[in-house]
Design a binder for these strands. Structure first.
Lengths: 134, 134
DNA sequence: CTTGACCTTCCAGTAGCTGTAAGGTTTATA
DNA sequence: TATAAACCTTACAGCTACTGGAAGGTCAAG
């Protein structure tokens, strides 16, 4: 398979696949006589695995670890599980933080007239005039 | 005020303040005879404003726009309000996405034994073997 | 007079790609 | 057979929003 085919079937861009090779996340692809990269189903499988790991929130280093576990026949599933649970907790924290930010935004919007005048509770609050008179 | 004082009082780092000046987010600070940057309360106010805008999720370009509104006496509060509402919606989408990711992670963790053996529903699912036998 | 805490500029690095340039190859069509 | 479209290659720059570090100038205290 050529790179564009693997790209289509993995959901990654060709650029990204070359990048993953460059940083050693996957083995360098074998090359055809013309110098084009050539992929087999095993390589496609690894790229799909990486795409999914990224999709659920793992960064490249974590995805590398997970791929290492996948390839390690003497692995212990507890390791994969702890990576997943830790990531889930990280997402939880991110969600909480985003919620808090959203609350502030919604509150500001509620207290702002949103008309053609210059008076604006949003700008006041961002400037530190803590809307004491809302 | 010197930069470290402004840093302390705005919550930004000195590095960040210099960076904001470099990219034109704030006016270049006036300089003392020794070449040190010197800030007045107005500059501090703007930096605080920027710190808060960043805190609630605006990126630098959006923060620049908000600061523009703050400085524009002929502004219309509807503009600030629409920026805030749009940002709130963006946060909502991010939250939904993180929730979906977290659901997948929690589901994978639940189906994984997490013991010393190699069998692992997490790795199976990431590899695309859609846990049909959970 | 030296030590330490400031300040300055400049350059490099981070994550995870994406865009673009300049070129080689393959394939389909006129 | 010519040629144009659609691939492929490498290499380098750029993106966001900073952070770290080097090399050096300034200033106040002891």
């Amino acid at each position: 398979m050529r790179i564009s085919e693997v790209a289509k079937r993995s959901g990654l861009s060709a650029k990204t696949i070359r990048y993953y090779e460059e940083i050693g996340l996957i083995e360098p692809a074998t090359r055809g006589v013309n110098g084009y990269r050539d992929y087999d189903l095993g390589a496609l499988g690894q790229l799909r695995f990486l795409a999914r790991a990224r999709d659920v929130g793992f960064n490249l280093e974590e995805s590398r670890q997970l791929l290492g576990l996948l390839k390690d026949s003497s692995r212990q599933s507890v390791h994969a599980r702890s990576l997943v649970l830790e990531k889930s907790q990280q997402l939880e924290q991110k969600i909480q933080k985003l919620h808090a930010m959203q609350d502030v935004l919604n509150d500001m919007a509620r207290r702002c007239n949103g008309d053609e005048g210059p008076e604006c509770a949003i700008l006041d609050e961002l400037a530190g005039l803590e809307g004491a008179f809302s």
